[in-house]
């Protein structure tokens, strides 16, 4: 078990390397890596630094954030089926982005879409907190999250419904599938602060999540401030999911599947799972992003499609396991 973290970290590094040397420009591995660190400002250096590097780094940052947020959400709700999208942030961030695409704001500025998505996330999480109330337990949080998700989903459908032409609708649908293609360092600098801040908040919840293994009452009498914990969790998740969705679109299943796979390997401990899932999420999203480029390089396969294709069968495994444990 002590090997888990180093092994995961090694996987992240290896996949980072693979991601860097993979692309439509058919360049030998050595050349591309040299170009990355050279100062000649040649076309290959440009490709490496402006196209492949941000893409590889975004996969690590967003995947890691989603994995961590998923582990924290599952730990807080004590439910292996919880995921970061549950509190309505993904839905409201997507609505913001879709509105930006619809109104043409996305076309007018590089920051138009990400800013609108972040604004959507902030409004969404604000509404969820308002609905869930200052005291309430985890149940009111889930209900508020579902309400906001449903509302944001309905509004997104409305925008699609009213979109002026099929091309606009197409653009929206494609964006919602999530992708890391053609992202620049600007996108990285946009997402990184949010994901990093969110991850820092998540790290602070580790102790509380451990205590919550015994339920809310027991955790509270062990000195855990549940209101504070919930606030950190919700804001942290919103920052991670909001930042990620803003630059990469809606990427599902990472936050759900990764903690689920890693849980047995950390003996169920929620705090260890938090950090293992950060690395695991980075591994999964890198794998998905590499698959996207390998399977159908010419067709612009979307990242969210791949994560869902990997994620859904894992549910079958979960069903199988649950059935086996039943008498």
């Amino acid at each position: 078990m002590k090997l888990l973290m180093p092994v995961l970290a090694l996987c992240v590094l290896v996949l980072f390397g693979v991601s860097l040397v993979l692309g439509p420009a058919d360049v030998p591995v050595g050349d591309s890596l040299t170009a990355l660190v050279s100062d000649d400002y040649g076309p290959l250096t440009l490709v490496m630094r402006e196209i492949r590097l941000p893409r590889a780094l975004l996969a690590i940052v967003i995947g890691g954030g989603l994995g961590m947020a998923g582990a924290a959400m599952q730990g807080y709700l004590r439910n292996p089926l919880a995921e970061p999208g549950l509190i309505g942030v993904s839905g409201s961030a997507a609505l913001g982005a879709v509105l930006a695409l619809h109104t043409g704001l996305a076309a007018s500025s590089v920051f138009g879409l990400p800013a609108a998505a972040l604004a959507g996330a902030v409004i969404g999480v604000g509404l969820v907190m308002l609905l869930a109330g200052p005291r309430g337990g985890s149940l009111t949080l889930i209900l508020a999250g579902i309400a906001i998700s449903a509302f944001a989903g309905a509004l997104t459908s409305l925008v699609l419904n009213l979109s002026p032409n099929p091309f606009a609708a197409n653009e929206i649908v494609f964006w919602m599938m999530g992708s890391l293609a053609d992202r620049s360092m600007l996108h990285l600098w946009l997402a990184l602060p949010f994901v990093a801040a969110g991850a820092a908040l998540m790290a602070l919840t580790a102790r509380g999540l451990d205590a919550l293994t015994l339920g809310e009452d027991a955790a509270e009498t062990m000195g855990i401030n549940l209101r504070e914990l919930r606030l950190m969790l919700v804001i942290g998740t919103a920052a991670i999911v909001g930042g990620g969705t803003a630059v990469a679109g809606a990427i599902g299943f990472v936050g759900l599947v990764v903690p689920h796979i890693l849980r047995p390997l950390v003996q169920g401990s929620p705090s260890r799972l938090l950090f293992a899932s950060a690395l695991g999420g980075a591994v999964m999203l890198q794998l998905a992003d590499i698959s996207v480029r390998l399977i159908l390089p010419a067709r612009d396969l979307k990242l969210g499609v791949i994560t869902a294709l990997i994620g859904a069968p894992l549910f079958l495994h979960l069903i199988y396991k649950t059935r086996k444990e039943q008498p």
């Binding site: 004590r78 919550l212 293994t213 015994l214 339920g215 009452d217 027991a218 009498t221 849980r263 047995p264 003996q267 169920g268 401990s269 929620p270």
Partner: peptide, 15 residues
């Protein structure tokens, strides 16, 4: 004070 609630919650398969 240590408190042992009536609902015996053990959420995860921790040793």
């Amino acid at each position: 004070v240590a408190w042992m609630p009536q609902s015996r919650e053990i959420a995860w398969p921790v040793p």
